[in-house]
Design a protein around this nucleic acid. Sequence first.
DNA 1: CATTTGGTTCATTTTTTATTGAACCTTTTG
DNA 2: CAAAAGGTTCAATAAAAAATGAACCAAATG
Lengths: 168, 168
Amino acid sequence: MDITKDKLAFIEESGLLMETFGLTRMAGRVFGYLMVCDQDAVSFDDIRDTLSASKGSISATMKMLVNTHFIEAVSLPGDRKTYYRISRNRPGDLIRSRFRLFDLFGGLLDKAAQLKNRNDETGAWLQETAGFYRWIQQPIEEAIRQWESNPNIAAHATRENGTKTRDG
Amino acid sequence: MDITKDKLAFIEESGLLMETFGLTRMAGRVFGYLMVCDQDAVSFDDIRDTLSASKGSISATMKMLVNTHFIEAVSLPGDRKTYYRISRNRPGDLIRSRFRLFDLFGGLLDKAAQLKNRNDETGAWLQETAGFYRWIQQPIEEAIRQWESNPNIAAHATRENGTKTRDG
DNA sequence: CATTTGGTTCATTTTTTATTGAACCTTTTG
DNA sequence: CAAAAGGTTCAATAAAAAATGAACCAAATG
């Protein structure tokens, strides 16, 4: 409801940016609002009012954001409303799920390499690149795990020097 | 032109998959065709015929794919046509450019953390997650560099074949 | 059991995005 | 210089995606 001008601007910014992630603009706005709102969790109608959107649109948007694990629903005893807040995901989970796209892309390259009958430069590129996509999954998962095992040390290491330590 | 049924199917598959990357379906088809075609580089009209699309659509699509570095134009002496082929990118470049999106997302989280005035659970999550996005850039760049410094060794882990060397 | 609350659903409308095709450039060729 | 090749541009159209709002439904309340 009573939300500052700069937060509203931020919400619009979030809408535009998250469109580039394949969400709808409305979903980006909702996520933006949940990021900067003062309450810990916000009701359907609060979101609807703040964003001046229709019930139908908010309903669809909330479902989508919950399904993609960006947000989660919260219910309270003695209260019929549903509240929503940003998911308590491990930070790496979004990258993990995005990386599945790279994996799919690698699979496509693989398939192309097999369909191709001429063994030209492009064929070699396909094989090399498909191999890369297969290979990169592991180091990335490792990096994420490293952070998860000790976020603070990892954060500290980057700010001090760029030295990557490995004790997994 | 004379293209097999399974390649056409692959091209459509590529169109659908690359839509999830934010390209148009047509761009995905073109990229798919360039992946599996027998020629090393293919002319505008060849693409147009194979995909049964209009000049305007192909023209816009080729520009878009060239601008995003998915493909590159090739010209030949004594030939007025422009040919196109898959870019000879280093395999990591696509991931690099996609990672800029994560960086933007991290920036958004940072901004949110600053706008927020209450220091609740979500506030803590924002800070932690923004930190993670800042931190992860480095290990990923390192992993990509590791592959680039010796693709074959890394590739060997996953495949027997694919002995291709690069020299700038 | 009638009302209210808190949504969901879905046909319709609005908005956005992609495609077409004709007109139009710019080089090259005869 | 006329004609053709090889595209590009852009107004019009088609197709897809998102938002609206009214009808609807289930659970809780009086």
